[in-house]
Design a protein around this nucleic acid. Structure first.
Length: 266
DNA sequence: AATGGGACCTGCGCGC
DNA sequence: TGCGCGCAGGTCCCAT
C-alpha cells in the first residue's frame, strides 16, 4: 500500500544515497517483476549506467539514468526498496559502484520494474490524473461536478486524481467528516473545500513522518515510517472515534475494506 | 458512466 | 499441532 507519501519518502532518501552512483551489476532472483524489456536486455542495459536523478509520478518512482534510459518502479502492495540491502528477501538486486546493494523486495510480486526510453511512453503515466498538490480548489470542485461515483473509490481512481490509495482516502474523508459512500457530486461546496484541504494536509503530514508502515512498507533504510500512530481512522476498528468516541467501523466498499466513524462522517 | 467481479501473487491469521 | 481457507488491496481487464 505505498501511496504518495511513502513513495515520496523513498524518493527523497534515494536522492541522498544513490544519486551519482553507478549500477555495476543486476542480479535477478525473480524475473516475474521485470515487465519490460526482456530480463537479458534489462540487465545488459542497466549495467554500467549511473543514476542521474530520481523522479516521482504519483505512486511511481523513476530513476533517470546516464545512458538516457529510465527505470520505472511501481511498488504496488508489498514492494520495498532497501539500501544498503542484505539481499535476503530480494527479487532484484542492483549492485552499486560503492559496493553496496539496492534491493528490490516484493513478497507478492505485484510490483513492476520497467526500463524505458521515455517514461511518457507508459500508458499508466499518460492516464494519470493530477496530483492533489498540483490542483487548485476550483479545479477540484469542477472535477467532482456530475460525478455519480461514491467519493472514496473516486479518490482512489488514479485516472481521476493520482497518489491517493486506500489508507489516505479513508483518513482524508474522516478528517473532512464525509461518509465514504457519498455520491461525489452530492458534496456541498464547503465539504469539497474541507476534503481538498484535508487530502493535502494528511499527505503532507504523512510525508513529514516518513509514511505509514502498515503491511510491508519500509523506508529506504529498512526502518519503518512513523505515521501510523497519527492515523485517526485507518486500522482503528472498534476503537473510539477521536472526535465523538463512537466506535470506528470497518466496512467493505467497492471490494475494499474501509474505516469510518458512523456517527460523525455523514 | 458506473459498478462488480476476477486476475495477478504470497503469507498471515483464523477456525476447526 | 496442522491443515485449508479467506483475506489483504494497487492496478488492469472484462462483463453487465
Amino acid at each position: 500500500m505505498p501511496e504518495l507519501p511513502e513513495v515520496e519518502t523513498i524518493k527523497r532518501e534515494l536522492e541522498k544515497s544513490v544519486v551519482g552512483k553507478k549500477i555495476t551489476d543486476v542480479c535477478v532472483h525473480h524475473p516475474l517483476v521485470i515487465r519490460q524489456p526482456s530480463v537479458g536486455k534489462f540487465k545488459k542495459e542497466l549495467a554500467g549506467a549511473a543514476i542521474k536523478k530520481v523522479l516521482r509520478k504519483a505512486k511511481l518512482l523513476i530513476l533517470e539514468l546516464s545512458n538516457g534510459k529510465f527505470l520505472a518502479i511501481h511498488l504496488k502492495m508489498t514492494g520495498q526498496l532497501v539500501y544498503p540491502g542484505d539481499g535476503k528477501k530480494s527479487r532484484v538486486t542492483f549492485r552499486l559502484s560503492d559496493g553496496k546493494n539496492l534491493d528490490f523486495n516484493d513478497q507478492r510480486m505485484f510490483g513492476e520494474l520497467r526500463l524505458v526510453d521515455d517514461p511518457q511512453s507508459l500508458k499508466f503515466i499518460q492516464e494519470l490524473g493530477p496530483e492533489p498538490f498540483d490542483l487548485k480548489l476550483e479545479q477540484f470542485k469542477e472535477m467532482l461536478a456530475g460525478k455519480k461515483t461514491k467519493i472514496k473509490p473516486l479518490l482512489m481512481d488514479q485516472k481521476f486524481i493520482s497518489g491517493i490509495g486506500n489508507l489516505y482516502a479513508a483518513e482524508s474523508l474522516f478528517r473532512a467528516k464525509i461518509h465514504p459512500e457519498r455520491q461525489a457530486q452530492s458534496l456541498s461546496d464547503k465539504e469539497k473545500e474541507a476534503l481538498f484541504t484535508e487530502i493535502r494536509e494528511v499527505l503532507s503530514e504523512a510525508i513529514k513522518y516518513g509514511g505509514s508502515s502498515v503491511d510491508d512498507y519500509v523506508r529506504l533504510s529498512g526502518k519503518k515510517g512513523n505515521y501510523v500512530s497519527h492515523h485517526q481512522v485507518y486500522g482503528r476498528e472498534g476503537k473510539p472515534c477521536v472526535r465523538c468516541k463512537a466506535p470506528i467501523k470497518r466496512v467493505a466498499l467497492a471490494g475494499r475494506g474501509t474505516f469510518l466513524c458512523p456517527k460523525c462522517q455523514i
